[in-house]
Design a protein around this nucleic acid. Sequence first.
DNA 1: CACATTCTGTAACGACCGGTACATATTCGA
DNA 2: TCGAATATGTACCGGTCGTTACAGAATGTG
Lengths: 194, 194
Amino acid sequence: MAGRPREFEIDKALDQAVQVFWKRGYEGASLSELTRAMGISRTSLYAAFGDKEGLFAQVAARYETGRADYMTHALEAQTAREFARRLLQGAVDLHSDPDNPHGCMVVQSALACGPDSDSVRHQLGMRRRGGEETIRQRFEQAKTDADLPSDCDPGALARFIKAVIYGLAVQSVGGATREELQQVADMAMRAVPG
Amino acid sequence: MAGRPREFEIDKALDQAVQVFWKRGYEGASLSELTRAMGISRTSLYAAFGDKEGLFAQVAARYETGRADYMTHALEAQTAREFARRLLQGAVDLHSDPDNPHGCMVVQSALACGPDSDSVRHQLGMRRRGGEETIRQRFEQAKTDADLPSDCDPGALARFIKAVIYGLAVQSVGGATREELQQVADMAMRAVPG
DNA sequence: CACATTCTGTAACGACCGGTACATATTCGA
DNA sequence: TCGAATATGTACCGGTCGTTACAGAATGTG
């Protein structure tokens, strides 16, 4: 049983929603701004995505597998050091692309604001931990391959990389230039063994 | 000409307001939660502090010179490396103190949310640049003192330290333990010459 | 005492928030 | 062709936001 066909494309609408959540964070993105950017009515949004939280879940998934996916390319690196370099460079490139809003959508949404968005923060916390674990495992493997020294703590190194990436996001929001972000990434690489 | 005396202490009220803005960020902190925490009525708040933005300006000043002042102690260090270590350690301690909310009040408020808080973001941007400049000048001096190698870029090093501090704040909000934050700070020190 | 001045509490303002009834339009299967 | 099913547009819900009129209470000065 099929009814009236949808008059917009889900993925195009999600892409527009990504831009809004990226700029505003979860709570800062209002339904009015979202519907305006997506080109659909409130009712269509709720019919297609459930509610604001459901929409954000799909937006977050698209964000991570789309513009903000620097993990895939990094995992193809041969060495741990090159892996780390690609992660940091990916963050620098992400925040330097003039087509993207400043900052990181996940960071913006996880930090702000009220107690309504506890579930969203929790949801993003899961994604964050997953990302850190992927990085840690890559460094763990490098250790068994003797690609990293035996006294190196893969978990600490992974968290350090992530911390720098978060720092890049914050500085990007503050208006840092590409050169400044690049300097931070280069400095961070001095702490990576190899 | 003096009228009816104020029935609360400005500084005590500001301290309570710091806690709320720290937890919620600028936009996430509602007047209702602020007045409840400060123990005063809406009218008294507006009479004493102007409006929400004026209150936040005074709160931000008190935040930087109060709990979040790790700069003063750091500047007393003898070497550039010890200076950097104290900055990072100050951030770790700040985010590990169980009396403080998680994260950094400035970061929380600068990232969120809507277009209403552009002026607050701008105000915080000024403070942030000021802090980075103080760090850079200390490293610059260390360079002339031959305390840092001549090929070291003080601005890049300052921005790197700040980036890591921002990263610590983000990870603190995400629920990182003191040990995890300490590991990040220790890793970052490997990138500091000396 | 009266008066200006300042602070306090009550109660409300318009604007926006996320979310939703409701009727209408458009498709498919029977 | 007729209903079941899905999408759409209008118009609205209760709630919260930051902000403010307004009147009363407490001070100093004359």
